[in-house]
């Protein structure tokens, strides 16, 4: 997760868009896994403004949606947002276009796991940590990982 001070411009190269990038792979996969239609998102930002964990995220939910639309997977899969998401469904119930954004987050976590990006694998949880974390927290984590 990058330190965002809001002062420096994003240190990222331009996205070089082609029809292959836009149409191949990533967006289709998210559509299939989530059963949602990513192009339906018109970027109103309601999912971000209502998200209770937005302040902890490196990429806001609405921008996650946007990156998927443009076929840009790296920042999402390697970022923290999909793991910080609490699956609280706020975004899903607020979306004016009826997109189940929580299902999109599930799909993205699944893709992250398929690609071996394991931000919080069970083997990383030490017995000491497991003992100190409340049980519902652990259950929540495993639920996310199991989707």
């Amino acid at each position: 997760m990058s330190e965002n001070t809001g002062l420096a411009p994003p240190k990222s190269p331009p996205i070089r868009l082609t029809r292959e990038i836009v149409n191949a792979g990533f967006k289709q996969r998210v559509n299939e896994l989530s059963g949602q239609h990513m192009d339906a998102c018109y970027q109103c930002g309601n999912c971000s403004s209502g998200c209770p964990l937005a302040q902890e995220m490196d990429i806001l939910p609405s921008r996650v949606m946007r990156l998927v639309q443009l076929g840009q997977s790296d920042d999402i899969i390697n970022g923290g947002t999909i793991w910080i998401c609490a699956s609280c469904f706020q975004c899903t119930v607020r979306c004016p276009k009826g997109i189940d954004i929580q299902a999109v987050m599930d799909a993205l976590r699944q893709i992250a796991m398929e690609e071996g990006v394991d931000h919080f694998g069970p083997d990383q949880i030490s017995p000491e940590l497991a003992a100190s974390v409340p049980q519902p927290g652990l259950v929540g984590v495993y639920r996310k990982l199991a989707t």
């Binding site: 190269p13 070089r16 970027q43 921008r63 946007r66 443009l70």
Partner: peptide
Amino acid sequence: VWGTDTLTGRNIEIA
């Protein structure tokens, strides 16, 4: 074409 996409905060280049 050199443009930008303010929704991702990224510049866009399309050949």
